[in-house]
Design a protein around this nucleic acid. Sequence first.
RNA 1: GGCGGCAUAGCCAAGUGGUAAGGCAGCGGUCUGCAAAACCGCGAUUCUCCGGUUCAAAUCCGGAUGCCGCCUCCA
Length: 485
Amino acid sequence: MLLYNSLRGKKEEFFPLGKDHVRLYVCGITAYDYCHVGHARSAVVFDVLVRYLCFKGWKVTFVRNFTDIDDKIIKRAAAEGLSAAEVAEKYIAAFYEDMDLLGILRADHEPRATEHIPGMIRLSQRLIEKGYAYATAQGDVYFRVRTFEGYGRLSGRNIEELRSGTRVEPGEQKEDPLDFALWKAAKPGEPFWPSPWGEGRPGWHLECSVMSEELLGLPLDIHGGGQDLAFPHHENEMTQSMAATGGEFARFWVHNGFVQVNAEKMSKSLGNFTTIRDILANFLPEVLRFFLLTKHYRSPLDFSFDSMEETEKALQRIYQTMALLREHGARTKWSNSALPPELEEELSGLENDWTRAMEDDLNTAGALGHVFGAVRLANRMLENKGWQKSTPSRDLGARILADLHYWGQALGLFQAEPQAWLTGLKDSRVRRKGLDVVRVEELLAVRQQARQAKDFEQADAVRQSLLDMGIEARDTPAGQVWDVA
RNA sequence: GGCGGCAUAGCCAAGUGGUAAGGCAGCGGUCUGCAAAACCGCGAUUCUCCGGUUCAAAUCCGGAUGCCGCCUCCA
């Protein structure tokens, strides 16, 4: 498959270095607050990548870390009156709650920075021995950026340009403003670990270098994360690892694009973020997951509740067709009439298109378009009175259902039992709109009676008042049903 | 200022140099007591603009304009 490699700025054919074994490392969260849509996107994108790599028959070892010690956690701990460890614990637990709902598979290893302090100290020592790093009198250890040939390769920067952007915090004893911290001396009241340079804590970039090497071995096949991590985090991570080992760090760098709000990046600092739990209070988790896959993973994606409602309808359409296909498959009488061969050919085409989209840099948006192609095909077949009872239609229907299930496994969608899902959707909408179900049922009963009495004037009047409440009454062969408009 | 990305119908969005997927909304038809759902049909002679390469460009090259991101913590 083709994957866009940030290292070279183009799509490249991906294959694992070990014959059938992909080693994948993705930067997880810093556990200091609830996750927002941006975190969800990153998690979903790499979840789909893992699922798809597995589909291709490769064995995947996936590592996703937690940063459980850093400035923001310490700050948050002070604000919440907890220890840094307690803050990390709390938000890691919240992460699992949110991500489990979104259908994010657990990684094979989910290490925390604080579990790898000895390794980080060893890596720092290695770098000092090689002359790439130095310790200051006050117990900080910095990486000497200028000693590393090619710094800036990943993020497309050169050292001279970076110069202007850097600044030195008061009290820092850097040799050069560009140098970044490997180890930070503890300030009073901060959590610390003993080290050859005194009590302190690791810098941010170090953990990923250490954990990826220890758990997967270098070079990694793929290293992933959000676009905003490319610089400085990934650049520094790559630099220190390559300096230490003298070899390659990661063969492919994959970066997902941002979630935006009104065309601006959703971020903590701008305060324009919506948490996953805010969304799940109003929408089914699968709707959010689907939404996050409706655009190519490298492009910016604008989030809004309006888009969520739109996505909800689109996903509902797929489940509705799945429900119809289930019903259709459960028929007991079949005729021998034929089905035009084009239908099967069309489906084969869609199957190929789906795979081609996924093979092309994980184009989930394109792939979803082809899923709808299959939905339309199914509906067309089910609707046709000449076809719907035929044995070939039974087989084609089963094949479409199997395709939807298969595609959905790779995307982490469409796995629910259709009727149950549709019922869940209705409940979710009722809750969101604060509807009074008892009142709705009463009105429906009135309309039912009026209809039976052929008093269509009253029946329509009732339907109008239901509509005013946001309820749509529908008459089907099976009787009256309703849905949230 | 440096580097990078994006500009496709009312909105969202895919698009491998060969003549514009799909979703939402809208309109017409089938179905229906009337509707809804579903299906069928309609909708960009055109892909921000201007040049260039080519038999052929939304797709490649150059330029302009606009928006965004990174350069500082950030998925």
